[in-house]
Design a protein around this nucleic acid. Structure first.
Length: 335
DNA sequence: TAGGTTAGGGGCAGGGACGA
DNA sequence: TCGTCCCTGCCCCTAACCTA
């Protein structure tokens, strides 16, 4: 029986979340828990545990999904009041001097030391680089193999009304959605049936993986693709992508193909995770990638579900966590 | 032939998955 | 345990093509 449901007690969960030194590690260990072979301890940047592994290629007819990583399901949503989906055991503040070479940024720390950090967002980061010397939050890794110990996690932007933290770690969105699924915080996404199994990174074609496959005691299996959203327009609407993304187009195309090949036995779904709290709705960007927006409209018409959730960074003195905000937000695909 | 434009491809950093 | 593969997409370099 593949079903694995771990019972996490309320006290234990709260204890874990309070323990800043181990919270992230345990959360993420749980998130990617392997049945037998324990994984090595993830570092802060282990959001990459959910890193997508896809290759370009022709869209083959959906094959039988191959098993990926099984995720423990938290039967008792002990910390449902907090809805913490991600924890940074250690954060360092600084000011953004420049971002360059796609993966790098120079940051001035509080002691005036300038460090080069890894920037885990490969996009143009439109709207995030406007403020000179913007405040940033860095996570710190003790992995000796890393060239740069710091990872850029959050940038503070001005949204017209005030300062706002925006998460830039595009791969952490997968970890956040994974945790939300485990805790049952996305009932709109997977229906109200009992989740029996969550598998991450499931290979479903010769060249493609889906972020999550969620099985329930209902008739449908949910195939969920996660997209990280950082850009917000002046009208309060979050949009994705912020540049032409043929890869994102490909992913939507794959979900449409899944729907066409499997009918109603599976439910292809896209979850747009907005890594900021100041958005009131979401839309695929017709400005930055009209083809993607058109594909999303087609996908919706074909039966692919689109959801958008926002989250918020809560910081303490030198740590922080991400809280999933109530949702979903309205998704507009018709304009 | 020279200059400008466009297209294509590789490199970049980090880390998980997978196979040997 | 280790090596390899692959993901992200911008940037830069080179090649191909077009025009004057």
């Amino acid at each position: 029986m593949l079903q694995r449901i771990s019972l996490v007690t309320m006290a234990a969960t709260r204890r874990r979340l309070r323990s800043s030194s181990s919270a992230t590690k345990e959360l993420l260990d749980d998130l990617v828990a392997a049945p037998k072979k324990p994984k090595r301890a993830p570092k802060v940047a282990t959001a990459n545990a959910m890193a997508k592994e896809r290759t370009s290629g022709t869209r083959a007819k959906a094959a039988v999904a191959k098993p990926g990583k099984s995720l423990d399901i938290v039967a008792l949503a002990a910390d449902a009041d907090a809805r913490i989906v991600y924890t940074y055991p250690r954060l360092v503040q600084g000011k953004l001097l420049k971002r360059y070479k796609r993966f790098l940024a120079d940051i001035q720390l509080a002691n005036d030391e300038v460090v080069t950090v890894h920037c885990p967002n490969t996009g143009p980061m439109i709207g995030l680089l406007d403020l000179p010397l913007a405040n940033v939050q860095l996570s710190v890794s003790d992995n000796p193999k890393r060239k740069y110990a710091h990872t850029l996690e959050q940038i503070q932007v001005h949204n017209g009304r005030g300062l706002e933290w925006v998460g830039v770690h595009s791969m952490s969105a997968n970890a956040m959605v994974g945790n939300a699924l485990r805790h049952g915080w996305l009932p709109d996404v997977v229906g109200h049936a009992l989740i029996t199994k969550i598998t991450a990174e499931v290979k479903h074609t010769a060249h493609s993986r889906i972020d999550f496959v969620v099985e329930t005691n209902g008739p449908k299996t949910f195939y969920i693709e996660v997209k990280s959203v950082t850009l917000r327009m002046d009208n309060g609407r979050a949009v994705f992508p912020d540049t032409v993304s043929t890869r994102a187009q490909k992913h939507v195309d794959e979900l449409i193909a899944l729907r066409a090949s499997h009918g109603t036995s599976i439910q292809p779904t896209i979850v747009f995770l907005i890594q900021r709290r100041d958005s009131t709705s979401f839309a695929p960007s017709t400005v930055h990638d009209p083809a993607f927006a058109a594909l999303c409209a087609s996908a919706k018409a074909a039966g692919v579900h689109l959801f958008a959730y926002a989250c918020e960074l809560i910081t303490s003195s030198d740590a922080g966590h991400i809280v999933l905000l109530p949702g979903p937000l309205p998704v507009h695909t018709d304009d």
